Every structure is written in structure tokens, then in C-alpha cells.
Simulated assay, not measured.
Amino acid sequence: MTSSFTDFFESWFDQLHHLVHQLSCTPKPPTTPDHHRDLLNVVHKVMSHYVEYYNVKSLAAQRDPLDFFAAPWASTLERSLHWIAGWRPTTVFHLVYSESSILFESHIVDILRGFSTGDLGDLSPTQFRRVSELQCETVKEENAITDELSEWQDSASELVNGCADLNEKIERLAEVLREADDLRLKTLRRVVDLLTPQQAVDFLIAAAELQFGVRGWGVNHDRRRGDV
């Protein structure tokens, strides 16, 4: 299973690069109905790409969830940043705030003159409030899943002592992983839904570039250490 998912991941990751290129080529700001449709279409394609990833991952994890915690297709840096075999959902909100701040500062003169940029640096008070609300909700859900994993880990002695059914324990771990992945995808969708199409493009580019950067640095680091 490891090699098949690794092959899928590498192909999926390559396709993500192509989709980000499409995001980068969209007209910003959109000035015609066709431009708006183009933005919506490419955002939909990227979100569908993430849905595909989690669908394939879910099916593979049902067979062997432990493989996803080991994640041999990831660099050591990526694995060190993992929360339950993937990125921490609340990372999304840190990314929104940091990108919004960077873009706001770069357009501060235009904004003070009353010009709307329409990008992530131009989030409305309502959007900021909704992002904050979603962050609080996500933190609670994230903590609840963390507690579930802690309970699973605390019961490891039952396996050592032969007091637990191994298959049942592995199935429970697969369920915890599924809940974590569901929260990751749900968080991504919620944030994209509260943004305008142009802002969603900015956000998805930033999210992918963060992933590209971490993976690239991690792979290079492993090569220097002789791990790859």
C-alpha cells in the first residue's frame, strides 16, 4: 500500500503545481463576468483536487492507518510538523491573518485613499469576525480529536499486556485519523466559502506555496543528511 499511495501522492502533488499556476494566471482583479467565472472555476478545480486527496487517503488509511503516521512519502521536516498524520487545521487561520497583514501593508496607501484592492488584504469586518469565529470552533474540534488520540495512546499498555484486540485498536486509530482529515477538509472549505473568489485564489496560492516550501526544504535537508 505504501508504494501505491506514494505514487498517488507524487502525482497529486505535481498536479497541484499545475493548478497553482492556473490560479496565478487568473485575472486579478476580475473586471468582467467571464473573469468571475474563471476565478470560480479554478477555485472549484483546486478544491476538488483536495477532496480527491482525502478520498484516496481515507480508503488507504482504512487498510493501514499506521502507515500514514509513519508517512514514508513525506520528508522528516514534514513529519515533524504533522498533527495526526497531516497539517494542523488551525494553521489555516494563521495563514489567513499573515497573508492579510502582508497584503494590507503593501496596499496601505491605496486603502487609505479609499481604493478597494479586493484581495486578502481587503477583508471586511464581517469576514474578520467570521474567521475569528471559525478559528474558535476549529480549536475546540481540534482539541477534542487530540484528546481522542491521547486516550488511544494511553491504552497502549492493553496491547502490551494482551488485554485488547489489536484489530479493534487499529480500527479506532483509523477513525481518529478520519476525524482529523474531515476537520482539515471542512476547515479549508469553510474559509474558502467566506472569501470572495479573488480572495480565495490568493489564499489557495498561499496555502500551496507554504506546502511547496516546506516540502522542498525538507527534501533538500534529507538529501544532505543522506536520508533520501
Rank of each mutant, 00 (worst) to 15 (best):
L183Q: 02
R172M: 07
A164M: 05
D165Y: 11
V176L: 04
R189G: 03
D154I: 02
R172W: 02
D154H: 14
L177V: 04
L183Y: 02
D165K: 10
E168A: 14
L149F: 15
K186C: 02
L173C: 08
E142K: 07
D181F: 02
N161P: 00
E158M: 13
E179L: 11
N167D: 13
L173M: 11
E142F: 13
E168F: 06
A164C: 04
L188K: 03
I170G: 00
Q153D: 12
D147T: 12
A180G: 04
A164T: 07
D154W: 09
L173I: 03
C163R: 15
A144M: 10
A144Q: 15
K186I: 00
S150A: 13
T146R: 15
E158D: 15
L188V: 01
N167K: 13
L149C: 08
E168I: 04
L183W: 01
L149W: 10
E141G: 07
R178I: 00
R184K: 10
Q153R: 11
D181T: 05
S155W: 04
E148Y: 07
D147V: 12
G162V: 04
L173P: 00
E148V: 03
D147K: 14
Q153Y: 09
L166Y: 12
W152F: 11
L173Q: 00
V160G: 08
N167R: 13
G162T: 07
L188Q: 06
K186E: 01
N143F: 08
E148G: 00
D147E: 12
V176Y: 03
D165T: 04
A156T: 07
S155G: 12
T187F: 01
L177M: 11
K186Y: 05
T146H: 13
A174D: 04
L159C: 08
A180D: 01
W152I: 01
N167A: 07
T187H: 02
E142G: 04
L185Q: 06
L173A: 02
L185H: 04
E171S: 13
L188I: 05
D147C: 09
G162F: 08
E148T: 05
W152A: 01
L183A: 03
N143D: 14
E175Y: 10
D182L: 06
T146V: 02
L177P: 00
A144T: 08
E141M: 10
C163L: 13
E148C: 10
K186T: 04
R184Y: 04
R172G: 03
R184L: 02
W152N: 01
N143Y: 11
L149D: 01
S157D: 09
